[in-house]
């Protein structure tokens, strides 16, 4: 049979618990309403690849395939071709005719970025990569050159 002491103890415990609840009511929630709101990632987060361009619009990538050689999972495929001197795609003689990244294989290690001699391929902070089909997990050059707005925010560095 419960004594008066139990009642008092129970009341105190409930009050303590309610205190936590009431305090939480007053704070801002941590839930991010993704995709309506951007998700904040750390500045050095490694996500989806991007192929950069120079300011004059030429592609940085020269199709050297060093990223392909450096890739530990064989996720990158590059096929190069010779630039038309009249209408070049990239500076110099060589450009990437085909550039594909297979995101089913990629482990986002960033070795490709390290290997690139012209800082053409970089890993962005974009992490959302859901696709409906396996086939569309292979991103081609056009997709990598102009990545869509990923709706992310960069967390301030500590």
């Amino acid at each position: 049979m419960a004594g008066l002491g139990d009642v008092v103890r129970g009341t105190v415990q409930i009050a303590e618990a309610m205190g936590v609840t009431l305090k939480a009511l007053a704070t801002k929630p941590v839930t991010v309403e993704y995709p309506d709101e951007p998700i904040a990632v750390f500045p050095r987060y490694r996500g989806r690849h991007m192929l950069r361009r120079y300011d004059n619009g030429l592609e940085r990538c020269i199709g050297c395939a060093l990223c392909e050689a450096a890739c530990p999972t064989g996720a990158i495929y590059v096929d190069a071709a010779e630039n038309d001197p009249e209408n070049p795609v990239s500076p110099g003689e060589r450009y990437a005719k085909t550039y594909e990244v297979n995101f089913m294989r990629c482990v986002f290690c960033g070795d490709c970025e390290e290997a690139c001699p012209v800082e053409a391929v970089v890993l962005t902070q974009a992490f959302p990569l859901p696709e409906q089909e396996r086939r569309s997990m292979i991103f081609v050059k056009e997709q990598l050159l102009e990545p869509p707005d990923a709706n992310i925010a960069i967390r301030p560095a500590h």
Binding site: C64, A65, E68, A69, D79, A80, A81, E82, R94
Partner: peptide, 9 residues
Amino acid sequence: SRFRYRPWD
């Protein structure tokens, strides 16, 4: 064959 191969692949 210019630019169509890399010796390692």
